[in-house]
Nucleic acid binder design. Structure first.
Lengths: 236, 236
DNA sequence: CGGAAACTTGAAACCTTTCAAGAGTCGTGG
DNA sequence: CCACGACTCTTGAAAGGTTTCAAGTTTCCG
């Protein structure tokens, strides 16, 4: 089942973030037998599509992706940005069909945990369902923050976005102050509920205030404290 | 453990909505032994508070409640309205502490599933964790709808809110077209991300258009189809 | 190197909020 | 049972933050 013996959950650098984080060594070993490692995708490729049958929980191995939903008017709405180690697919659990799509924002690879038989999974890794529930709970907290943020002014949205990205990158061993956006201004605006022009203006304003340095998609945070002061949600 | 033998999950009218919905007869019987039934609360009473230790998942037995979070500015944000049969407490699962509060909007009673030992729960009701995950998944889908809605204009927000409430009441055996809001204009505005004056104006506008009849907190939907036409999310 | 796409920037328009005041509702007590 | 006061809701007008429209400019990729 496991094509490449050198890649498994036990030696994965994301083990403290991803699915295995709350499981025993033995459970992880068993999990490794059923987890499928998929080929690489390119920007714009779909990891899953709205309407697809729910068959598995997916973990991002490398690269970033966007979770999108469509409204009745045909508008696309970006609901989440997914980083390495994060899980996706929970949106299909309830109705057994996904009501969101997930699209790669850059070259991306992922792992897949097939879920066709809950009892079977429970027998090989008793803590797995509980662990999935914990991951879902974490996502719900994130979503709650976004819902609060959606009612706050534009600069607060952007400040929160930058700080949130910064701390999530940090957890993955990347720089806290410097990163490259994989979203266009259009996509970032969509995600934050702002017009792309507003995003552009705001980034400029932040730069003029000395909070960040912007070079197209490359962002450098130059005054973390001031950014924190702008943003209005407790946890980063 | 079960004080009142006449109230249990097996004879509860909410069994197709609430926790027992995916469980076997035997699992429900076992569950009944650990579920606590609590006394009644009044409007304004807290079911749980931000910061509380996560100890249980709560199910609303009767009445309605609001899920609220506070931002760093001290503003309250209503994230969800909870109806009978709905579960709450998932926000505490990840960090073992709740980061939201839940407050009764009217006279309310609830049941409580203590969660102090996952393995113990799994042994008495093997499907329970999976069922909780399904409920969490359902909540996540609802949250996604709200996140889409937060980026839509005011009339769409209100139309969706009314239709969503209508269909949720229907599932509980109440009227689809007539109900009484347990939220003030202030709270409704907060929930929808609108000023209370905007809510008031919008309700009037909907009434003038013949979509609804408003009598203070009492709402009657008079043109369901037109309301659906206004609203921009697929599922009601 | 050339063309398309992405980004920036300015000005006007717009939806929603804020401010302000009046009307209605509800509960309590005389 | 009606009166009073507090709170909630309604309504109008002005203010304000964002969006939309419209060019330019830069970046990216073939």
């Amino acid at each position: 089942m496991n094509i490449n013996a050198e890649v498994n959950c036990n030696n994965c650098s994301l083990d403290s973030i991803c699915l295995p984080r709350g499981l025993s060594k033995k459970e992880i070993d068993n999990l490794d037998q059923v987890i499928k490692r998929k080929k690489t995708l390119q920007r714009g490729d779909y990891i899953l599509r709205e309407g697809d049958e729910f068959k598995s929980i997916v973990a991002i191995k490398s690269g970033t992706a966007k979770l999108i939903a469509n409204d009745a008017h045909g508008n696309e709405h970006i609901l989440d940005i997914l980083l390495p180690g994060e899980l996706l697919g929970f949106d299909g659990i309830h109705k057994n069909h996904h009501n969101c799509s997930v699209v790669a924002l850059e070259t991306l690879s992922f792992c897949e945990l097939p879920i066709n038989n809950w009892d079977g999974l429970a027998s090989i890794a008793p803590g797995l369902t509980r662990e999935l529930l914990l991951h879902a709970g974490e996502k719900m907290n994130d979503d709650h923050n976004k819902m609060v943020l959606s009612k706050r002014p534009a600069d607060e949205k952007l400040a929160y976005f930058l700080l949130n990205l910064s701390s999530r990158y940090q957890r993955r061993g990347f720089s806290t102050v410097e990163f490259t956006l994989t979203l266009s201004r259009q996509e970032l605006g969509n995600y934050l509920g702002l017009a792309l022009e507003t995003v552009s203006r705001l980034l400029k304003k932040f730069q003029e205030k000395g909070l960040i340095t912007v070079n197209n998609k490359h962002i450098k945070i130059t005054n973390m404290e001031a950014l924190h002061h702008l943003q209005g949600i407790k946890a980063a």
